[in-house]
Nucleic acid binder design. Structure first.
Lengths: 208, 208
DNA sequence: CGTGGGTTTGACTATACTCAACTACGGTGG
DNA sequence: CCACCGTAGTTGAGTATAGTCAAACCCACG
């Protein structure tokens, strides 16, 4: 569904590689480009006055981001892992002029709106357990990972996930533990887990 | 900021009036049009399996909605009040062909993404009080209502607001009560209140 | 004037947050 | 290759907060 459209053929573009943690752009910066993720994972986030932050979206290869109709960035984009990006000149409703490019921008903006709406739906789940289940489903879907028995790689930190879900890292950790006790997941390491391991490896049913 | 653009001049369009409560379109319906609110208030919502629903956005005059890149509607649109709409033929990346129209769609989709991101930021506020304060600020901003001493009209029901904020109506009601006790608002009736009434009318400081 | 849905209030419970300490892992340098 | 250190993650205890269930209230509507 992503990645194969190339509406931006005629648009001036260049490649960019950023190491893990690098800020692609920051809140308040003037908008001059938009981006496509080619490799790695990017997060969009807003840093709040009280030091907490909200992660609006995690972006994966094929995703287009940075398309905004404002003058300055309202959210920052940071590299979760080492990332490879394609940068395109112009953004929002100005800067590109061909009908194809405008249609591509519309498409990208629609995708972003859909992603945000999906995220919103996840957050409306009351109860940490349901939010985390939703997150796992979402992550599995994005990675094309089998929701039963599949291995899921989470490139982001626990704190990232917590800030994405509006939970504290403590609650998130406890919830992972509870889901593991229920046999719904098996945590291999902090960033690697197995979904619904049916009996599977040792320990899967121990807690039951 | 809204309402004065008219990128859709060349697009086939017609007018539609809907009474309060009318479903403009429902989840799962094929997408063939997009809309602009001319008068009244519309809500976008997703109905959840457990009977609860999440309201994704409230839309006011000038707002464009229904621009999606999918095949079927992922959310329903319902009239909060009696509404007057302009309907436009086509949606998403297909159906309209002029560069102006495509740019207009991109703009509309960006606005929607921004609105959803803003909403997400509001929801990430932990604590009902902060969420409700954010909602009041947001509503005041959208209505051009003076945040100090201004009269705010809320066209939607308490349940609507609760579903928008991810709270229960009970918690919302109590929170309104607490804010009134703090002197931050004065509730005239369920759908009409005054922001930061400085001493103002009788009762404003009674609870302090 | 009567009815009914929306709203408010109350009591109780479950849940997630806070603060704090402990542990495990990964990266670095000897 | 191993030891060290720092960060990220986990665990624990106590508390605040929002949810749930239930009933009363009030306004808007017919």
């Amino acid at each position: 569904m992503y990645g194969l459209r190339d509406d931006f053929e005629g648009v001036k573009h260049w490649r960019l590689t950023a190491p893990k943690g690098r800020i692609i752009y920051d809140e308040g910066e003037p908008i001059s480009t938009f981006y496509r993720v080619d490799q790695g994972c990017v997060r969009l986030q807003v840093n709040r006055e009280d030091g907490r932050r909200q992660i609006l979206a995690f972006l994966f290869p094929g995703d287009v981001f940075g398309v905004e109709s404002e003058v300055v960035r309202r959210a920052a984009a940071e590299a979760v892992t080492r990332v490879e990006l394609t940068c395109f000149q112009g953004s929002g409703s100005g800067g590109v002029c061909s009908a194809d490019a405008a249609a591509g921008l519309a498409h990208a903006a629609c995708e972003m709106a859909t992603a945000l709406a999906t995220h919103l739906m996840g957050l409306c789940h009351t109860g940490a357990e349901r939010r985390v289940r939703w997150f796992l489903d979402w992550a599995a879907m994005r990675q094309g990972c089998d929701p039963v028995g599949g291995r899921l790689d989470l490139p982001m930190s626990r704190r990232d996930i917590a800030d994405f879900l509006g939970l504290t890292p403590e609650t998130l950790s406890r919830t992972f533990g509870r889901l593991e006790a229920l046999g719904e997941i098996r945590v291999l390491s902090a960033r690697r887990l197995v979904l619904r391991p049916r009996d599977g490896g040792p320990g899967a049913l121990r807690a039951a």
